[in-house]
Design a protein around this nucleic acid. Sequence first.
DNA 1: CTAATAGTGTCTATGAGACAGTATGTG
DNA 2: CACATACTGTCTCATAGACACTATTAG
Lengths: 230, 230
Amino acid sequence: MADYPPFAVTADLVVLTVRADELHVLLVRRGVPPYEGRWALPGGFVGIDEDLVDAAVRELTEETGLPQPAGHLEQLGTYGRPSRDPRGRVVTVAWLALLPDLPTPVAGSDAAAADWVPVNRLDRARLAFDHGRILADGLERARAKLEYTALATAFCPPEFTVAQLRAVYETVWDTALDPRNFHRKVTGTPGFVEPAGRSTEGGRGRPARLFRRGPATLLHPPMLRPSART
Amino acid sequence: MADYPPFAVTADLVVLTVRADELHVLLVRRGVPPYEGRWALPGGFVGIDEDLVDAAVRELTEETGLPQPAGHLEQLGTYGRPSRDPRGRVVTVAWLALLPDLPTPVAGSDAAAADWVPVNRLDRARLAFDHGRILADGLERARAKLEYTALATAFCPPEFTVAQLRAVYETVWDTALDPRNFHRKVTGTPGFVEPAGRSTEGGRGRPARLFRRGPATLLHPPMLRPSART
DNA sequence: CTAATAGTGTCTATGAGACAGTATGTG
DNA sequence: CACATACTGTCTCATAGACACTATTAG
């Protein structure tokens, strides 16, 4: 055990949010080689006595500047091609975070040039390291999980309308959904959302009831995306 | 970059197969401390110039003694609690493998005491390291993926009957399925299975047609397990 | 009033589950 | 023949999708 091959281990984050009807990912501009000046996923080295998930949470709070994010965090996968980092053998554990649109702009202590970038207007091939592949995997994971889990509420503030939740689905899936069938489906699935009792004010049209996320994590039956028809 | 915290990285495998109507996992008996004499998942250190998936394939072929396994291999997750290995900081990338029942007994070069163990008659808490948790995650992943993918065929030999495929579902899910509805569902899902043209001989009852796995990887609509009803 | 958005009701097609009935082998 | 297993047909219920209709606000 004394002589095992020594690896560096990092935690990288695919942080997604929905703002202005576009899906955004949190990226940082690299200030040092390699890939100087290129966009990269936020992340950093795991401490020798630090748990993997703790490193991910630490990076997330550092980069977003939020004390305790209200969203969702899960492990995405581990990437360790020997040539993926020119500096040496670095294995990265990638994490997927889904956050509500943050009222505060991103101003992390660590990342000077962090910013939200719309995923549809981003050339993934130009990201540093293998981060284009990691981002693609994160997007596919997020899109798939909206189908059979209640995770779409992780993109919403504590209280939200059915239309806001529908906008999340439409933005992440890049499709249009029937507002009436969506409403029936969401309110008819036990535990998906719970009425908050209040309503919106001051908008155009009839005021909408506000909801909170419910206790359900899995959706039975799932929410089907139109592209997945039979 | 010169001074990063040094980690050891291992690849551990949850190898599942169906034999004699029971779900089995491949385990090895540890011959050295720590956890000497306890069951553990097969695995080993990743080489400093070795890709992660190559290490998993290498361990799989070493432990099963098969040149090229016909089943399925996917990354399960990465486990890296600082205290998970008393010898030092070891992060393990766990993989899930689904194999057809092997005609050859397990006789790996590396693992003297490798054996197939029925998962339902195994005390997961007595496995070495955090392998009980890894095995639990692997079982849950396998059970979930049978619902919405065609992966059940990975447990089958190249040619199989509908009854054999049904036995896979019943064994992995530990439930009974209606043979008639199952038959209609499987043969009616495009690309799930394809007729091989031949039939079984010598069994009790009417001979069954043989099938091969089809090109489909995802099932639309999914195969629903009875426990997931609404 | 109109425009806009929220929410409900209803019809139809599809698929799951229950299960009768038919086909084709062994002993 | 009886029996076992493979396979098909049919009925019923639940749900997705399409979409008419009603409700409630702003201007």
